[in-house]
């Protein structure tokens, strides 16, 4: 039963990655694209975790954690760039 749920969830999340990709390509403002990228990272974290569950390997959690941190820092610095025109003052 869990394997069916895993497959359905993976399909749903893959579809949301496609939706995010569409928003990333269409825009129209830079903040939309940035938000799409941020959401895409969260979706891919979910995919990593589903992968780990379906193959019963739990060595990818560090990857997921690092992914979350790098994405957060990237979003923040990009926002800072949009706000101020530079990242480090």
């Amino acid at each position: 039963m869990i394997s069916i749920a895993l497959a359905v969830s993976a399909a749903a999340i893959s579809f949301s990655v496609v939706l995010n990709l569409w928003r990333l390509l269409v825009g129209p403002t830079p903040t939309d694209r940035l938000l799409a990228l941020d959401t895409m990272v969260i979706n891919s974290i979910a995919l990593i975790i589903l992968f780990g569950m379906s193959y019963a390997t739990f060595i990818y959690f560090e990857a997921a954690l690092l992914f979350a941190m790098v994405a957060f820092v990237a979003t923040i610095s990009f926002c800072k760039y949009l706000l101020r025109g530079n990242v480090i003052e």
Partner: peptide, 20 residues
């Protein structure tokens, strides 16, 4: 576990749908 997985995936789909 299956219910949590499906609910979570549903919410993530809704979030991305809202974005789109």
């Amino acid at each position: 576990i299956s219910a949590l997985l499906l609910v979570g995936a549903g919410f993530m789909l809704v979030g991305s749908l809202g974005l789109a």
